[in-house]
Design a protein around this nucleic acid. Structure first.
Lengths: 142, 142
DNA sequence: GTATATACGACCTTTTTAGTCTGCTTTCAA
DNA sequence: TTGAAAGCAGACTAAAAAGGTCGTATATAC
C-alpha cells in the first residue's frame, strides 16, 4: 500500500552508484549487486529494464556492463518508476475497469483521478539529481 | 506498487456516502455494502477501524449503525490512510530496518525519506471535502 | 427474549512481489 | 578459435501482502 517496490529501490541505488563513477565507465550487474547486497539476477533484470527504457546503456559481452545514458539532472523519479513498473495508476480500476465490482456505484472516481495526477506530477518533477545532493560529499580521487 | 488499498477505497466511499445523508442520521454497514457492492464483512472492518480512529461514530445494537463524527471539511486523506493502514512508510526499511539486506550499504535512504515526507504532507493536506465538490450536484431533497 | 446491529479475531484464498534457475547470445582476449 | 565474461529472456518457485470469509461475542431496540 503506497510503497516503493524493491525493483525501484534497486534501480535507484544502481543509478546513484553509476553517477558516482567516472563518467562513461562501465559497471557490471555483479559489481553493483555485491556492493549493495542485492541478488544479482534480480538486479540484472532491473538494469535490463532500465536499458530498454534508455535510462542506462548496456554493453554486451566480456568486459561489458552498464553506464548512465542520461544525466541525473534530467532523469526523474517518474521515469524510473515508469521504466520498472509501467504506467502509474493509483487504483486498479484506472487500468482495468472490468475488474472493479464497484465501478457502477463508485462515488470517488473523479477525485481519486485528480489525486493520481498530482502524485504523478510530483514523481515526474522529482529529479534524481536531488538524490545526489543529499549524500555526504565524497572527497578524494575518482 | 504505489496503489491505494481496497480498504482505503471502501473507507472513502463510505465516508462520502455518509456525508450525503441527513446530518446525524445512521447508516448500517449492510446498507452501504449493498449500495456500493462491497463485501459487507469487509466494509464492517473498515468502518470499525474508522470508528476506532474517531473518524466516524458507531451506535451498537438494533437500529444502530455509523455516522460521521467529523465534517469532511476537516477530515483529510492522510487521516483516512492512517486509520486504515497505519503510519505511512514509503519503504519497508523505515518501519523495520532489520528486514532490509541493503541497510548498511544503502545510498538512497535520506532522499527517499524526503520524498516520503512530501507525499505524506500532500495526503495530510488533501481535505475530503474536495471529494465532495467534484461530484455532480445532487438537486432536491436529502 | 429475540432480532438486529457492531466488534473482534482466526482463518482461508488470491494476487503480487521477490527471488531463482536454465539456457541463450554477444563480445573480448588469450 | 575458443573459453570465459557479460548481458538477455522467460519460466518457475517462494514468500508476503491483500482481499475476503466465518464464527462468535456483545450491545440495544422492541
Amino acid at each position: 500500500m503506497l510503497k516503493l517496490s524493491k525493483k525501484v529501490e534497486y534501480g535507484l541505488m544502481a543509478l546513484l552508484h553509476m553517477d558516482s563513477l567516472e563518467p562513461g565507465s562501465l559497471v557490471t550487474a555483479k559489481e553493483v549487486s555485491d556492493q549493495f547486497a542485492i541478488p544479482s539476477e534480480l538486479l540484472g533484470k532491473v538494469l535490463q529494464a532500465l536499458a530498454r527504457a534508455s535510462l542506462v546503456e548496456s554493453v554486451h559481452g566480456a568486459r561489458g556492463g552498464y553506464r548512465l545514458k542520461q544525466s541525473l539532472d534530467t532523469l526523474t523519479l517518474g521515469e524510473v518508476v515508469d521504466a520498472l513498473e509501467g504506467p502509474f495508476h493509483l487504483v486498479r480500476c484506472h487500468e482495468n475497469p472490468a475488474t472493479c465490482d464497484q465501478f457502477e456505484s463508485c462515488n470517488i472516481r473523479e477525485p481519486v483521478l485528480q489525486i493520481q495526477d498530482r502524485l504523478m506530477g510530483y514523481l515526474s518533477a522529482f529529479r534524481l539529481a536531488e538524490f545526489r545532493s543529499k549524500r555526504p560529499a565524497v572527497a578524494g580521487k575518482r
